[in-house]
Amino acid sequence: MIKLIPASEQHNARVGDWLESRYLFSFADYYDPSNIQFGPLRALNHEWIKGRNGFPQHPHAEMEVVTVVMDGELTHKDSLNNEVVLKAGDVQRMTSGTGFTHSETNDTDNDTELLQLWFLPNKRGLAPSYENMNVDFLDAKDKLIPVVTGQKVLENVPFINSNSTVYYGHVSQGEGIDFKTFKIRKTLVYVLSGSMLINNVEADRNDQVRLESQDIVSLHGNAEATFILVDVPATEVNY
């Protein structure tokens, strides 16, 4: 199964004049019972935060929360006494587990662009924990770079408690990458820029393609393109 969801069919949300979000799954005031999750992937939000604004302290529980900073800066403060300024190329992983609180603010005068992904963890009741790392993915050329993973064999990548991996990818015009997968896995590709063919399905900026029961995900650049690829187990996690 290969399903294209064009940008025009996705949910756009605004909060005042300081936050613009693109929700790929049901989130906040957007609810679609047919679009709740994809395997353990529960949320994928593409967000732009205006300067001197952000999210005040708020709680999370029983979720792996991943933040990928694409541009600008994001200040994170949490109840585990972490205080970190994340910059473009940084990735943050939070295991909320039994519960913790945090804030996310853009304390600069410029916009911040980020992706935030939520995964249901492999098991409930984990102790809250935090990790951030500069993955230096933005200069990738014609390759996939893992930015967060549940595979312990991948080193120098933040670890999540989910049998899932998120990759940042780049393809030049006319070039391609083959991502090997299995029929017991699912793949979601979200196009950040440019235009590409994903198993011969054309996808442009902000389009997403969801694939199931594939052996190979073929990623070909119609024009130079960047994208996020999320590899997850086909079985949904439900609590």
Rank of each mutant, 00 (worst) to 15 (best):
E62S: 09
G99Q: 03
D109H: 12
V66G: 08
S103Q: 12
D111K: 06
V66I: 15
T95Y: 07
K87S: 15
A61L: 03
L126P: 01
S96K: 06
L120M: 11
V69T: 10
V68D: 00
Q92G: 07
E73G: 00
D109S: 12
H76S: 03
T101I: 03
E64Q: 13
W118C: 13
P56G: 11
N122P: 06
Q116V: 03
G97F: 04
H58A: 02
L86C: 09
P128S: 03
V84F: 09
H76V: 06
M94I: 15
A127H: 06
S103M: 07
D107I: 13
V85Y: 08
P121R: 07
P121V: 06
V84D: 13
F119R: 03
A61E: 10
V69P: 07
S96L: 09
K87Y: 07
T108N: 05
V66M: 08
P59Q: 01
A127R: 14
E64F: 08
L126M: 14
L74G: 01
T108D: 00
N81C: 12
T95L: 09
G97L: 05
D107G: 06
T75K: 13
V66C: 11
T95G: 02
G89K: 10
W118Y: 05
V66R: 05
L126S: 04
T108V: 04
G72E: 08
T67S: 14
D78M: 05
Q57W: 03
V69N: 06
K87G: 13
N122R: 12
M70Y: 01
T101A: 06
P128Q: 11
E113I: 10
D90Y: 11
L114D: 12
E113R: 15
Q116I: 02
T67M: 03
T108E: 01
R124S: 14
L74Y: 00
V85P: 01
L117S: 08
L120V: 12
H76W: 08
H102S: 10
F119M: 02
M70F: 03
H60A: 04
T75P: 00
G89N: 10
G125I: 00
N81I: 05
L115T: 00
N110G: 15
N110D: 15
Q116P: 00
E64V: 11
V65I: 15
R93F: 10
H76Y: 11
Q116S: 05
V84K: 15
L120G: 10
T75M: 09
L120K: 11
H58E: 00
V65K: 02
V84T: 15
S96V: 06
T75S: 11
A127D: 12
R124G: 13
G72S: 10
S96C: 09
P128T: 09
D107K: 15
L126T: 04
D111N: 11
G99I: 09
D107Q: 15
V65M: 05
L86Y: 12
K77M: 13
P59L: 04
L115R: 01
S79A: 10
L80V: 04
P59R: 00
N122E: 14
R124A: 14
D90T: 01
D107C: 03
V91D: 10
D107N: 15
V69R: 03
M70P: 07
P128A: 05
Q57T: 14
S103P: 02
S96F: 07
Q116M: 07
E62V: 11
P59H: 04
W118A: 08
G72C: 10
S96I: 08
L117I: 15
L117P: 12
V65S: 07
G99H: 10
G125H: 04
M94T: 14
Q57M: 14
L117G: 04
F100Y: 14
G97R: 08
G89L: 06
